[in-house]
Simulated assay, not measured.
Amino acid sequence: MGKLLEFLVNKKNKVFLVTCLYVHVTSLLFYAYYDAPYLAITNAISSLMYVILLITDKAGSDRNIMIAFIEIIFFSVTCEMLTVGTYGFIFYPLGMVAVIFHLVSTTKAKRALLQLLAIIGTFVIYGVNITGFIPIKSIANDLSEFQAFIVASNLVVTVSTMVYVSFLYMAEQEKNKALLEYNINHDQLTGLYNRRFFYTAIETIRKSTRLFSLAMVDLDNFKRINDTYGHECGDEVLKALSEIFTESLDENDIAVRWGGEEFILFMPGIDEKEAEGRLEHMLEKIRVCEVKFEDKTVTFTATIGLASCDDPHKYEQVINEADQNLYYGKNNGKNRIVTHIPK
Rank of each mutant, 00 (worst) to 15 (best):
L189K: 12
L189G: 12
L189H: 11
G191E: 09
R195N: 14
R195V: 10
R196Q: 14
F197S: 01
F197I: 07
Y199H: 09
Y199S: 08
T200D: 13
E203F: 03
E203Q: 10
K207D: 10
S208Q: 07
S208R: 10
S208P: 00
T209L: 02
R210G: 03
L211M: 15
S213W: 13
L214K: 01
A215C: 09
M216T: 06
V217M: 11
D218C: 08
L219H: 07
D220C: 08
F222K: 09
F222W: 07
F222A: 09
K223E: 01
K223C: 00
I225R: 05
I225Q: 01
N226R: 02
N226T: 13
T228D: 10
T228W: 10
Y229T: 00
Y229C: 08
G230D: 07
G230E: 11
H231Y: 05
H231N: 10
C233S: 12
V237N: 00
V237E: 00
V237C: 06
L238W: 12
L238P: 09
A240I: 04
A240W: 00
F245N: 08
T246C: 11
S248C: 10
L249T: 15
L249I: 15
D250Q: 14
D253W: 06
I254Q: 08
A255W: 05
A255N: 03
W258Q: 08
G259E: 09
G259Y: 03
G260R: 09
